[in-house]
């Protein structure tokens, strides 16, 4: 995530970290999760599920901030993120 300036409390705020899971067989390939993920964690897989849809795939696990947007916007109840406890703040794009 690009920031205009470093927030004053950046040191104190611990950015949450999440792990994304995809229930592949429920996906109908709408791509909402891929497009609206604020951290670009997901891409469209080249693989098909049983129904012939390209489902999302996690490419940048470490970037997920467990915002649940993919979970809420998914019309198929096919994707969700779980918070990861006790992990250091994930690396931002700037310092990777």
């Amino acid at each position: 995530m690009k920031l205009w300036r470093t927030p004053l409390d950046a040191e104190k705020v611990r950015v949450p970290h999440g792990v994304v899971s995809v229930i592949i067989e429920r996906c109908k390939g709408c791509s909402f999760c891929v497009e609206y993920c604020p951290r670009d964690v997901l891409i469209i897989s080249r693989n098909f599920n049983k129904k012939g849809y390209h489902y999302p795939e996690v490419v940048s696990e470490g970037l997920c901030v467990d915002c649940n947007l993919c979970e809420d916007i998914c019309p198929e109840f096919a994707i969700y993120s779980d918070p990861v406890e006790n992990t250091p703040a994930p690396a931002t794009k700037e310092n990777t």
Partner: peptide, 24 residues
């Protein structure tokens, strides 16, 4: 899925078309 407890999981996937907004 964390929402499964509030859904009839045994009926998923649902009948709505890809990109239909009803599921959201």
């Amino acid at each position: 899925h964390p929402k499964d407890t509030m859904l009839r999981e045994d009926r998923l996937p649902h009948i709505w078309c890809p990109t239909c907004g009803i599921g959201t």
